[in-house]
Design a protein around this nucleic acid. Structure first.
Lengths: 384, 384
DNA sequence: GGCATTGCCGAAATCGCTTTCGGCGTTCAT
DNA sequence: ATGAACGCCGAAAGCGATTTCGGCAATGCC
């Protein structure tokens, strides 16, 4: 066993056990610090390393008793496979990247963990790259950073189209999906069906007997806000109801309050659909201050279905977005790309239909005394 | 170049360029799909692979013009280092793990991204493991999962002591820190100085002239809640003020409202310190309904300093926790452990002193008319 | 002039795993 | 009886980087 340069090869022979295998650990504890490698397991089990590999990877053609011996040895040595070594040879890192952004909003933050949970169930690690700003440049940097750790796919929690298209550009050759408002033709995406959600909310108010519904919208440059406007308008048109001017806003309680004050002064306003629960919170307060009872004088419906909404006064009827499910769907979209890189047409857009959560902020017009009497005195409802 | 088994070695020789280097790509595009490896760069630059390595790792003893040639080659080939190969030999994955949990609370969710940002600045990847439940078992699983991808250290966003100690146990041998409420002797941690924050809030109310301050607390099994009780009590004692019974609660607006109703009925209550902004929101509403003006009749101070608080009615004076900074501090603690694994005594507990954000919900007792006159009519303040 | 030092760079070994190739012994079909 | 097929397993060759060891020139010092 002499190499062509004349030097003896270092201790790789199974017949030279006295040569320290790694580092300078004089003794290798049988029950060790998780530092054992596949060869240790193989030796202890009396098989070769690749049989151990076969066991780990669930290959067939391993005798049951051999498998047992290997598994025992793994347990005794507290063996942990080295993912880097595996990744090196398989060319698969086993990790997915998530591009996320810090936001005071309820939705985006709760999706991340859901995605991770689902990814873990599918055997993938998840690493994140955060966005400092919601702009192109940040997305490009984040994707580049994720590529550097050779993620196998990327999910971007991207509320704006500019971000989605930046992802499409930067991820070239890498499976990627968007989730949330921003989406682009180039990439599959999972989204809430905002149009349908808004329609649900509006129709609910119409069905209760309101002649029309006013809408406090989200920020103009977020597609989700626009879609909710569309749904609201469509429901109104379908019912032959007059379509009031959109009340512009952002997602915050602050502007909800401001716009709510204006709406409160208009006695013809009996139903308001808000693009977010926070908006609704502000509107609710403004109405309350103006002496207009909810839902007696004015009905209000929100959008988000946050847990806090159940504690508003009165408990807020809202359109619940299941962010966790949305996260899981986006992962499914990504996994589909991963399994068959060039498969048939995948759904480009997985639309998750939201659900109306009826609580107590919406009622028939003029139904005030009966509807609110109990509510105002009792605490907030405990519903989820 | 014949191996001892008699078979010719496969194409590793630089003199056999016709042998495809990898896979079956017939031609290797100079401007390629990021699939080039270090040897390609070396060839193009006319140097050896380890010189390329030296350039990448910033080793000295590389001539300037050589370095330039290598950098040019890297650019032309769009070369990306294979992290798995590096990790395999360096035994460092370059990634950190974060154990987080999904929560409707404002704080925990915003720390994650801050930590990631700081970690990226320090050259570390970040991968996450989410907790389905806030219990021991989940923490153990999450840490195990992170270990499997050989993270170099772990930060746990753990609000309860049981979780911190589970981390301490599971992370054995791996640098780890906790951030947030839960902490254990065994692990360093970064935390808000809740005692000082509560003292700040209480003293602020006392300084305004209130004879005492009532406290609506957070959930009993969260240390953060307990610490805030301690700080409140300490401030009261230091001022010689009577110490009312703690009003128990959790973090939610719902219980804030419930407890607020009770407090509102007690005319002696002129100042309330709430353990969270959400709690304060509920209290505010209860007071408003009871016809007690804020801050004219009753002053209220929250804890969190959420952006929404600036839009409460009236804008909420609160104790701001800088979660982003907290995240960065926890990372610093971890990095310190990483650089010198057995260094001297590190700060076991990095206490971040929060800051009182004075808005308009607290004033001198009986100061009602002047203080609220303008506020009630104007919109919510625009302060951060 | 001789020798050690310094600056720069290359050959080979190595990290721990998977893959490819092939070797046995049994069983099955012919 | 014989060849093929199958079940089970091992040897060796990588994956693409870093590390160790060493080589060669130019320089500094005695």
């Amino acid at each position: 066993m002499i190499d062509n340069d004349g030097r003896a090869r270092s201790g790789r022979e199974r017949t030279a056990p006295s040569v320290p295998a790694r580092g300078n650990e004089a003794e290798r504890p049988v029950r060790g610090s998780g530092r054992s490698i596949m060869r240790d397991v193989a030796e202890l089990a009396g098989v070769s390393a690749q049989t151990v590999s076969r066991v780990i990877n669930g290959h067939p053609y391993v005798a049951d008793h051999t498998r047992q011996r290997v598994l025992d040895a793994m347990r005794r040595l507290d063996y942990r496979l080295n993912p880097a070594a595996r990744a090196l040879v398989t060319r698969r890192s086993g990790t997915l990247g998530i591009v996320g952004y810090e936001s005071p909003l309820y939705g985006p933050t709760s999706m991340l963990y859901a995605i991770e949970g689902a990814a873990r169930a599918a055997g993938y690690f998840v690493s994140v790259a955060s966005l400092r700003h919601l702009d192109r440049r940040s997305v490009l940097d984040a994707v580049d950073w994720l590529r550097r750790q050779s993620v196998e796919g990327i999910i971007a929690i991207a509320p704006k189209p500019a971000m989605a298209s930046a992802l499409a550009e930067a991820s070239c050759g890498l499976p990627a999906v968007t989730v949330g408002g921003g989406c682009t033709e180039a990439l599959p995406s999972a989204q809430i069906d905002n149009v349908e959600g808004a329609r649900l909310a509006t129709r609910h108010l119409l069905d209760l007997g309101h002649t029309t519904v006013h809408h406090v919208a989200g920020p103009q440059d977020w597609p989700e806000a626009g879609e909710r406007v569309d749904g609201w308008r469509a429901a109104l048109r379908a019912a032959g109801a007059p379509v009031p001017a959109v009340v512009p806003g952002d997602w915050s309680a602050g502007t909800g309050y401001e716009q709510g004050e204006r709406l409160a002064r208009d006695p013809r306003v009996t139903a308001i659909f808000c693009a977010s629960d926070q908006l609704a919170l502000g509107v609710l307060r403004a109405l309350h201050e103006a002496g207009r009872r909810v839902p007696g004088d004015v009905s209000v419906v929100g959008f988000d279905g946050t847990a806090d909404g159940a504690h508003f006064l009165p408990p807020l009827t809202s359109v619940r977005q299941d962010f966790a499910e949305l996260g899981r769907r986006s992962l499914r979209l990504l996994l589909a790309q991963l399994d068959r890189p060039v498969s048939g047409p995948l759904p480009r857009r997985d639309l998750l239909v939201p659900e109306l959560v009826v609580r107590h902020s919406a009622a028939a017009p003029g139904d005030g005394d009966r509807a609110t009497a109990g509510l105002t005195l009792s605490g907030p409802a405990r519903g989820a």
